[in-house]
Write a protein that binds this DNA or RNA. Structure first.
Length: 193
DNA sequence: GGAATGATGTACT
DNA sequence: GTACATCATTCCG
């Protein structure tokens, strides 16, 4: 897997990750899904990015350079999983928002409390729970090892839907068109307008 | 030391 | 559609 792919800017990597496989083998078995929805968080000019106000203990993984995981807790309840992008020291990442489940669906269902298959990986907190990803994986490499991203051929441009990022409050870059999805996928967390 | 807050999900009306 | 659970991190004093 080419590390250079992950050193691209977040705005380039986010659509590039659509169709890629996210594989997790931390729970004994093998669970994987196809990435169908992402959001880019930029190193510059993006107040919604966790790295916008500099390096802190929580966001240090974002500065480790493309190809590592950035996992953090949100709302005291859930975790979100990001693929760090860009060069070391930049502070940018791509949030994975939804997957199409592929392997280990039984394990995912068990981890999620027997929800409907359509809801297994629909949303950033859900997919993290389904795959068995947690705070322990923060900072792990994604190029190889038990948690990894296997890139596929880049999606055809006409298959990529673009929209505003979800859940950002006012003044946090909520207008920026940095949300990407596979057009028409049944596994998106929300429809694109 | 303390208070505010968030890249959310679930349950319920 | 709205309520609310729940807490690490951040920022302010």
């Amino acid at each position: 897997m080419s590390a250079a792919e992950f050193a691209r800017s977040a705005a380039e990597l986010a659509p590039r990750l659509l169709g890629a496989r996210l594989v997790c083998e931390t729970g004994g078995g093998r669970r994987s899904g196809r990435i169908v929805e992402t959001e880019a968080y930029l190193a510059a000019g993006d107040p919604g990015c966790h790295a916008a106000s500099g390096r802190t203990r929580r966001n240090r993984s974002m500065f480790a350079g493309g190809g590592v995981a950035y996992v953090y807790r949100i709302y005291g309840l859930h975790h979100c999983f990001n693929v760090v992008s860009g060069r070391e020291g930049r502070g940018e990442a791509v949030l994975i928002r939804a997957l199409e489940p592929v392997e280990g669906i039984d394990a995912m269902t068990a981890a999620r409390g027997s929800v409907a298959p359509a809801l297994l990986c629909r949303g950033p907190g859900r997919l993290v729970e389904a795959l068995g990803i947690g705070a322990e994986q923060d900072g792990w490499t994604l190029l190889d090892g038990p948690l990894r991203v296997e890139l596929a051929r880049p999606p055809e441009p006409h298959r990529v839907a673009v929209g505003r990022r979800i859940g950002l409050g006012r003044g946090r870059g909520e207008q920026l068109a940095l949300r990407f999805g596979l057009r028409g996928s049944a596994w998106l967390s929300r429809r694109f307008p």
